[in-house]
Design a protein around this nucleic acid. Structure first.
Lengths: 149, 149
DNA sequence: CACGATATTGAAAACGGTTTTCAACCTATA
DNA sequence: TATAGGTTGAAAACCGTTTTCAATATCGTG
């Protein structure tokens, strides 16, 4: 498994794209954050340290990350695109707290297996999948109190 | 289990909302279609027979369906909101063909069970979930040919 | 049945996030 | 270092969703 930096540089070379300071800055910041930030949030975060980098560049660079395989686009249905670092090998899914926004990752080989079975039954070739459980995380339902808004 | 029409009328009464001809027209059209149409597509479809009904009304009425429980909002990550009729009782998930757009429904009690197990392990209270498998349906990968576009 | 309070409608505008445009500016290569 | 061609940031365009608003329809009441 190649390191993300290499993977990105290789991709740039292969596509005859250029290695710019902005792209490197964004790459470093992206690898450092381990959360599931929306483009907007990531941009705001980045802007604190690097006010010169524009939103368009951030957006374009995140898409490059996705294209070269070091990131995945996620969409939790809140109208914002999110990018997450592709760490390992294993696919993982998400628990999304609808109260505080916390996102918990999990993986389950049994579920993955059942998904393959279903695809097979329908003669369907799976390219990707997503599984998200929406609800209240331990912090938000523990005490019985819920947001009243 | 109440019939969808009743369920909707009850909801209107309960909320002191009014029973208008547009709402009834949209309800009938919505129950007739069994697909997973986007608001846009549903509106275009409806407009053929009922040119007088505006997009805003369609949109607002579909949201009412969702609120009163006879419809569910779906989001397959293509930037369009989709509504589907809530037929029965059982939750179901989707196979989405990325080539022809076909959507196949399925349900699997084992997967549902595993999801509950995972939620329990994380002390997470599930309100909703979604599982989508993206790939090629039997028609689109059977012959080995893929869209070239 | 007619009235009047209030909800609803359709068109257009506003909105919010994403994507494109474009002129100025870099980067890589020779 | 010259140059061709990719990149940048700001602003505008875009696209689906949501709101606004004046005109209209509905429903409970007198």
């Amino acid at each position: 498994m190649k390191k993300p930096e290499e993977q990105f540089l290789d991709y740039l070379a292969r596509k005859r794209l250029k290695n710019t300071s902005q792209r490197m800055t964004i790459l470093k910041a992206f690898l450092r954050q381990k959360s599931h930030l929306s483009t907007e949030d990531f941009y705001l975060q980045l802007r604190k340290k690097h006010p010169g980098i524009g939103y368009a560049t951030v957006h374009r660079t995140l898409k490059l990350f996705s294209e070269c395989g070091i990131a995945s686009e996620r969409n939790f249905g809140d109208g914002q695109m999110r990018f997450e670092v592709n760490l390992g090998n294993e696919h993982h899914d998400h628990l999304v707290c609808t109260d505080c926004g916390r996102i918990i990752e999990f993986e389950d080989q049994q579920i993955e297996k059942l998904q393959r079975d279903i695809a097979h039954k329908h003669n369907f070739f799976i390219k990707d999948h997503r599984l998200e459980l929406y609800g209240l995380c331990s912090d938000c339902h523990a005490t019985g109190q819920q947001s009243v808004s």
